[in-house]
Design a protein around this nucleic acid. Structure first.
Length: 271
DNA sequence: ATGCGGACCTGTTAGC
DNA sequence: TGCTAACAGGTCCGCA
């Protein structure tokens, strides 16, 4: 479900609730997410004051005075703000209950999400340590992509979706950025000129920035912390649009599978 | 080192 | 209408 813009939208939604609140307790109903939720998270968060919510790649960092909990939404996860006493549904796996009477509730039918303890240096956590630059930071550039792609035969689309290459680019925005940059998703990553990578870096930054402004993309069920959908779906140029006409040239948008992921592109615009 | 497929899990939809 | 298969926004891990 969520890529970087959806995670950022979630972060912005939950930050006002979380920031400055004191945790009463963490209620875990289903410990077995992608990894079992460590007992440490309950122990450390209970009674702690929350400092804020940050984001790194698609991870949400729930910072408390005692350390940071690292949350990931997986494919189908979402956070919502509820009254602490509201009855949970089948897939509501944990609540962070605050002394304000509100709770941060995590819902995730597929259980690919996770909640881990990152201590006082969460960015050193194994899952975060090797992640590449944030796409909206100055560190991320065409030169960086060119450097990382040297000698690679892998198709550029899965290359662009590797966390070590750039943080937070998932299946939707990889297709969208490649279309904007005019690059065919199957082109070998190591055979793309610097100029074209510069266009791609710009496209990634632009499309993610615009999607954040629109509150993310809701294809079926993404909702922010208040239950509102994102409005970027209507501005997607290729994703989920196989068979329709390309907005740029009018030719038919194609779909193919690359590494078991649906990929969308325009034969005419992307080479 | 690179790159691929499998794994995790449930829900929805397309097709017969 | 009902069953089945395919597919879904992620990404880590093990293996070749």
């Amino acid at each position: 479900m969520p890529e970087l813009p959806e995670v950022e939208t979630t972060r912005r939604g939950i930050e006002p609730l979380v920031s400055g609140a004191r945790v009463e307790r963490l209620v875990v109903r289903e410990r077995r997410l992608r990894w079992p939720i460590p007992k440490e998270v309950e122990r450390e968060l209970a009674g702690a004051r929350m400092l804020g919510v940050r984001r790194r790649a698609k991870y949400l960092l729930l910072e408390s005075e005692r350390g940071t909990a690292i949350a990931h939404l997986g494919m189908s996860g979402s956070f919502s703000i509820v009254n602490a006493e509201a009855a949970p549904d089948a897939h509501d796996h944990y609540d962070v209950v605050f002394d304000t009477g509100k709770a941060l509730r995590f819902t995730d039918p597929r259980k690919f999400g996770s909640l881990l303890w990152g201590g006082h240096e969460p960015l050193r956590h194994k899952l975060l340590a090797a992640i590449g630059p944030e796409p909206l930071s100055a560190e991320f550039s065409g030169a960086w992509l060119k450097e990382r792609s040297f000698g690679r035969r892998q198709a550029v689309k899965p290359f662009l979706m590797m966390p070590a290459v750039v943080a937070g680019v998932g299946n939707i925005y990889a297709s969208e950025a490649l279309h904007r940059a005019g690059i065919h998703p199957l082109r070998a990553a190591g055979r793309i000129a610097l100029r074209r990578y510069e266009a791609l870096a710009r496209a990634v930054r632009d499309v993610l920035g615009e999607a954040i402004e629109a509150g993310g993309t809701t294809l079926r069920d993404f909702a922010d912390a208040r239950g509102r959908p994102g409005y970027f779906a209507q501005r997607l140029n290729v994703y989920n649009r196989a068979g329709s006409a390309c907005q740029c040239c009018g030719s038919e948008i194609r779909r193919c599978m690359i590494g078991q992921r649906s990929s969308y592109y325009c034969l005419r615009c992307q080479t």
